[in-house]
Design a binder for these strands. Structure first.
Length: 198
DNA sequence: AAGTAATTCAACCGCGAGTTC
DNA sequence: TGAACTCGCGGTTGAATTACT
């Protein structure tokens, strides 16, 4: 029994608009149901991801500010790859974004550190950085939580007021809080109306 | 200006935890 | 209480973009 194939790949503007519209109606839950009734042809998972990582109001896009970078370093040193947990401390940033950021920027920095640091000072016995394969360096970079210390960051350093952070989180979470389930179950959506309202 | 390599980032996948019935 | 369903997380991939030769 083949279910209708779910669409994959990049989202179009129309899909984004439609998703936003339906999330406004149903709230951020029941993604499978939302995916079905929206007629997007996407999986609920895909819809959720698109919303959370790209369409959610209040998301920041673009380069990380120095404060954000420092906070990521601090929190990664503290929590490791708990990206969602780290993301909660960075209003407007998603776990996916932070994860990507870490993999690119921090890996690069870690590589630089490995290259600049004296091989003899390393406790790893078998390889100097110059001889380490790229994938090895990457994993080293990923796991090297002590990199934070190398960047001159210590856990005690306060870069971003936590009050500020939580205030912003609270503000963004007040979005879309109230909705009427009965209404939602009975509502009949028609595409013309949707397009009109967009 | 063209070709190639490196980088970035959106999106997918698999799995485990939590929730509902 | 247990099965089914849903959600969220972390890891990974691949297309698009940018930088370099």
């Amino acid at each position: 029994m083949a279910a209708a194939a779910t669409k994959k790949g990049p989202w179009t503007e129309e899909e984004d608009a439609r998703l936003g519209w339906f999330v406004g109606l149903f709230g951020e839950r029941r993604w499978d149901y939302l995916a079905q009734v929206s007629g997007l042809g996407r999986s609920g998972k895909s819809c959720r991801l698109r919303w959370v990582n790209y369409l959610h109001p209040g998301l920041k896009h673009g380069r990380f500010a120095p404060e954000e970078e420092q906070l990521v370093i601090q929190l990664h040193a503290k929590w490791g790859n708990r990206w969602s947990q780290i993301a909660r401390s960075l209003p407007g940033r998603t776990d996916n974004e932070i994860k990507n950021y870490w993999r690119t920027h921090m890996r690069k920095k870690a590589q630089e550190l490995n290259l600049f640091s004296s091989p003899s000072s390393s406790s790893s016995s078998s390889s100097s950085p110059a001889n380490v394969p790229k994938h090895e360096l990457e994993s080293m970079a990923e796991e090297d939580t002590s990199a934070a210390a190398a960047f001159g960051v210590t856990e005690g350093v306060k870069v971003y007021s936590m009050d500020q952070i939580w205030d912003e989180i609270a503000a963004s979470e007040s979005f879309c809080e109230e909705e009427d389930d009965e209404f939602k179950m009975n509502i009949k959506i028609d595409d013309d109306n949707f397009m009109h309202n967009c």
